[in-house]
């Protein structure tokens, strides 16, 4: 075998792998999309290519029932969680990254451990707390509970990021007589947008996808977030399991995420490797 042939073969092998990987990653999503466009009994015919283009399932999910409301809930909760955790994390990260004080290492280690907490371990205690505060079936309970995984994560990533900001900037600001909070919000903040966007996005996705707390802390349809709504979606009509609407709902909530991922893929990868957020 000549060198050129060998090289060609290698290229071929690489491309075969690339195609397999892409198909493997995308096929379930693709299949959900083509299923969501089928209506009636067409859904029970296995097809590999799009055959129907009926919007009935989307209409059913969006126009009847509570699904738009659930999407709104998810947006509110995820957004509030992101804003709150970034707000708390930026100042905390400054303290952890730029100030040397006693107990800093232990604090950082504790924060890292909390971000790896199994959520079930706090479920009983949190349930008690939510009930005690009268927050049951209220989205505030979820905003509170989600802090347990978004806050440590954002603090950690922002700390690593802030540590790398040039010291000269800070020194110059100090010479000008700036106070610590001015350093954070006027000097560092403008440099931190990329990091804030990345961590914010990752925290958003984590909150958007959370299931255990959402299943436990809210009851009514109108308060459910998207994952719970999809998990508990029951057929209001005479079908067995409403696969069509479930697939339509799945596509609706996934498309925005996919678009975000496509736009921010470089940042996401950077953020993931910096913080190793949960999968």
């Amino acid at each position: 075998m000549s060198g050129r042939q060998k090289k060609l073969l290698q290229q071929l092998g690489l491309w075969v792998l690339i195609v397999i990987i892409s198909v493997y990653a995308l096929f379930p999503f693709y299949y959900a999309i083509i299923t969501s466009f089928k209506s009636g009994s067409a859904i029970f015919q296995v097809t590999y290519w799009p055959t129907d283009f009926s919007l009935a399932n989307y209409w059913g999910v969006l126009a009847q029932g509570r699904f738009p409301r659930n999407i709104f809930n998810s947006i509110v909760v995820s957004f509030a969680v992101v804003v709150l955790s970034l707000l708390l994390a930026v100042t905390a990260a400054y303290a952890l990254a730029r100030v040397r004080f006693q107990g800093r290492g232990i604090l950082l280690f504790t924060i890292l451990s909390v971000s790896m907490f199994p959520q079930i371990a706090v479920l009983a205690g949190l349930f008690e707390m939510v009930r005690g505060l009268g927050l049951y079936n209220n989205l505030l309970s979820l905003i509170l509970a989600y802090m347990i995984f978004t806050l440590p994560f954002t603090v950690w990533v922002l700390t690593t990021f802030m540590r790398d900001l040039p010291i000269e900037l800070e020194e110059a600001a100090i010479v000008d007589g700036a106070k610590p909070h001015q350093i954070i919000f006027q000097v560092f903040m403008p440099l931190m947008w990329p990091a804030l966007v990345t961590t914010g996005l990752l925290a958003f996705i984590a909150a958007w996808n959370e299931f255990l707390f959402a299943l436990t802390f809210v009851s009514n349809d109108a308060q459910r977030t998207v994952p719970v709504a999809i998990a508990l979606l029951s057929g209001a009509t005479e079908q067995e399991i409403p696969w069509g609407p479930i697939m339509a709902a799945s596509v609706i909530v996934t498309v925005p995420l996919v678009i975000l991922v496509l736009i921010f893929q470089r940042r996401i990868v950077a953020g993931l490797t910096a913080g190793a957020v949960k999968g």
Binding site: A32, T35, P227, V258, V261
Partner: peptide, 22 residues
């Protein structure tokens, strides 16, 4: 391809469970 393999990661677990269930 890098974006493509991010898709499964971004999909909510519940949604991927339902997709696969189907």
């Amino acid at each position: 391809v890098r974006a493509a393999i991010l898709v499964p990661w971004a999909i909510p677990t519940i949604v991927s469970a339902k997709m696969w269930d189907w």
